[in-house]
Design a protein around this nucleic acid. Sequence first.
DNA 1: CTGAAAGCGCTAACAA
DNA 2: TTGTTAGCGCTTTCAG
Lengths: 346, 346
Amino acid sequence: MVPVTIRDVARASGVHVSTVSRTFSAPHLVNPETRDRVLASAEELGYRPNRAARALITGRTHNLGLIVADIANPFFPPLIKAAESQARLRDYHVFIADTNEDPVVEAEVVQALAKQVDGILLCSPRMSNDLIEQSRRVVPLVVVNRMVDSIPSVVMDVGQGARRAMEHLVELGHRQIALLAGPRGSWTNREIRRAAAATARGAGANLQVIGPNQPNQTAGSAAAEQVRRAGVTAVLCYNDLLAFGLLDGLERLGVAVPTELSVVGIDDTLARFARPRLTTVATPAAAAGRAAVDMLLQHDDDRRTTAQVTLQTELVVRASTGPAPHRPAGPTGATAGYAVAGHLKE
Amino acid sequence: MVPVTIRDVARASGVHVSTVSRTFSAPHLVNPETRDRVLASAEELGYRPNRAARALITGRTHNLGLIVADIANPFFPPLIKAAESQARLRDYHVFIADTNEDPVVEAEVVQALAKQVDGILLCSPRMSNDLIEQSRRVVPLVVVNRMVDSIPSVVMDVGQGARRAMEHLVELGHRQIALLAGPRGSWTNREIRRAAAATARGAGANLQVIGPNQPNQTAGSAAAEQVRRAGVTAVLCYNDLLAFGLLDGLERLGVAVPTELSVVGIDDTLARFARPRLTTVATPAAAAGRAAVDMLLQHDDDRRTTAQVTLQTELVVRASTGPAPHRPAGPTGATAGYAVAGHLKE
DNA sequence: CTGAAAGCGCTAACAA
DNA sequence: TTGTTAGCGCTTTCAG
């Protein structure tokens, strides 16, 4: 709490402050003996360079910003953890900010953090590309889960993942499929939708889009009724959270998974936790976090790079998908009578 | 990226830098008209005060540190989210750090962050009380999930929660109960253990402690065999993650929950996701995060407070607990033959 | 290899 | 109400 400064160390070791400074920021420029003496005093006094003061003159804060849509969404914690760990490995500290899926907050936070960081990881941004490019002029940016022209980015190939998921369903005989869509500003959502629609078209299947939805369990649960009425035999969900909620809602409605309806998630966060275990598309969130940090720090050195990294995704088949039933699980289908099961208590 | 400073604004609005400074840090001390002019120029130039520079002179960074044992542990995200949101509400930014359950990293991170923050939230610390008190001398601290003499803290009454859980089990007829313990340095773990032991003693039940365990799913899964051999009819777990893993392991071993074995979790993070749905002790993590931030910021003003806040917990009975069977689910019990079920594939 | 001096962006007395 | 001045803790020329 008593702040010990460079001056205290200088006094204690009988050298000028600039020598102490050098000892920490350019050790090779100082006589080994002097250095040892300084280091000893520093150690004894418990001196730690003040990074903020240093930043003022060097222009480098050694801080990073990490902006995510919702920390409580299980997709993010592994990404945050990996990014923070990678950053600390390189001696960077990281600011975290949660925007609550709000594009306005997002833009504000970027501005607020800009001066205090050397760069920002913008994860699953909900703001417009224009705004992102504008932000880019204020602070170095790496965008995760979105592709923006001229902005370095790390994305996961969810298009490919969605395609594999659709193919899997088609192979199982499904022809009437629903897509439980994600939130509005989401690039991932658009990718999934595009890929799913294309795959359906190519396979002679019909794709019904339900949404947009907030990517949480509640929304998934709430969509169950709509899904049942849609007359489909399979549902691809924007993420596991939505799929999980849907599973819950379906259980309440008495719709059996996968016998009456197949459900596929995306991101493989909650999939192992679900019963039946979710078939899902695994997305390498931790790897994305690490890659993004590396891009940010490297970009920091040699400027002018605008790399776009795409990480592979993988379909993981578990127990929530099965052969298409003869009739869809709708109110006019074989299972209409089960509606009363909705009154079962938890 | 082109940093606009207070001087640029001063020049643009034809006043001295100190007037610009006042406009932002003490608006009431400046003539409304001048203020408007300054504000206009600032707006136009996109000026934002540099907090680090400000901190250098005021001594207040307007940053907080948030140190947690494991971001990926579902207990923390809601706490982090709430803390960050509360902090930003008060115009504070927050650094996040993950210690990987390592007490050494914990201590290092406190030191590393100290100069850059006005205070640190130490969540579920694994380091010793001594070290915490030492850290306290370097930077204001609020400890979450631990009670340390003379250090402001926010804890949840897990002792009471464990007691209620044990009583619940005893009421269901269980007399041979296991406690699947948590990690070594955890205060929460000690509290649970103490309360569970006391309750067992008072009720004429026997409590077997299994552990310590890392608080993750893998450890829970791995403990299944040991639990089955323990000859108990019920298990109280340090957290939901461990309980979830245990459930998984038990399923593989063919032990039926709750008919053969009752399982109780703690923290209510994954409980709704489990099948059967976990009976658990709900802990108000988000409230704890908010409370801790408030204590830190308030303590910041009027010093010398050492408040200790205790938040209530609540037993939530779901489907993983039931009447005690006549024989425990051990190898010598009724279900020994189910061991072959361990070969079932996922 | 080390010291002296200037200054990063900002605030805080003090004067005017 | 505003300007002047000094200086927060540190780095970085430039001399020596």
